[in-house]
Design a binder for these strands. Structure first.
Length: 204
DNA sequence: ACAAGGATCCTCT
DNA sequence: GAGGATCCTTGTT
């Protein structure tokens, strides 16, 4: 099977909501490991749940960077989380990758995840970054360019689920309840099924 | 230098 | 389904 093409910068140069939805079924490759994205969340401009809400700092600068740039940060001092910058260069919006399904390198993934098996391997943002061996040095890395972490095209998803995002109780109610989380339907590779409902099929 | 914040994970009823 | 563990990075004195 031939290598899937990388996603283009134009793919990421759209509203985070559109990118988050369209990333379901796409793939991430880093060395021996390839995974298929099964769950995402959009963090948009003016979003009180987003890290961009207090303005640009050295830590979150990648969110404002060119579309397709990686934004990795440490949560709870332990977990690293992968985001991909969206919209135009200079706009503070991104998509968080929350869950994935193994495509290649299962042995490596399991080893990095402490020998876990099944959906526990990749159902959660901290787990995805751990399986892909990502750290803060990955910040600003361009996933549309060859080498290192790459975002690749993948099969079109059969069905999508949508629902509110996870872990953002601090946000304004409108943002907290906004259905800006997307997941692949009919798969166990999703972190929290709660609150997700099937999305209507998009018009062709 | 230091205090404080966490877009989670895991175990246990 | 709920509650606590856990410790690194950042922004500010």
């Amino acid at each position: 099977m031939t290598d899937a093409p990388r996603l283009t910068r134009a793919f990421f140069a759209r509203d985070a909501l559109d990118v988050a939805r369209d990333l379901i079924g796409k793939r991430l490759r880093h060395g021996p490991v390839t995974v298929e994205i099964t769950e995402t969340e959009a963090y948009r401009v003016g979003d009180t749940a987003a890290h961009s809400r207090h303005g640009k700092t050295a830590r979150n600068a990648a969110v404002w960077g060119p579309p397709g740039g990686a934004y990795v940060y440490v949560c709870y001092g332990i977990h690293r989380m992968l985001n991909l910058s969206t919209n135009e260069d200079g706009v503070g919006a991104c998509v968080l990758v929350r869950a994935a399904r193994p495509v290649a390198g299962l042995d490596v993934i399991a080893a990095r995840r402490g020998g876990a098996r099944g959906p526990a391997l990749l159902t959660g943002p901290g787990k995805v970054a751990q399986a892909l061996a990502l750290d803060l040095a990955m910040n600003h890395h361009d996933v549309t360019a060859p080498g290192g972490l790459e975002a690749l095209d993948g099969p079109a998803p059969a069905g999508l689920l949508v629902g509110p995002r996870v872990g953002i109780d601090y946000a304004a109610p409108a943002d907290r309840d906004a259905p800006w989380r997307f997941a692949l339907a009919d798969t166990p590779w999703v972190s929290h099924r709660r609150g997700l409902t099937r999305a209507p099929e998009a018009a062709p």
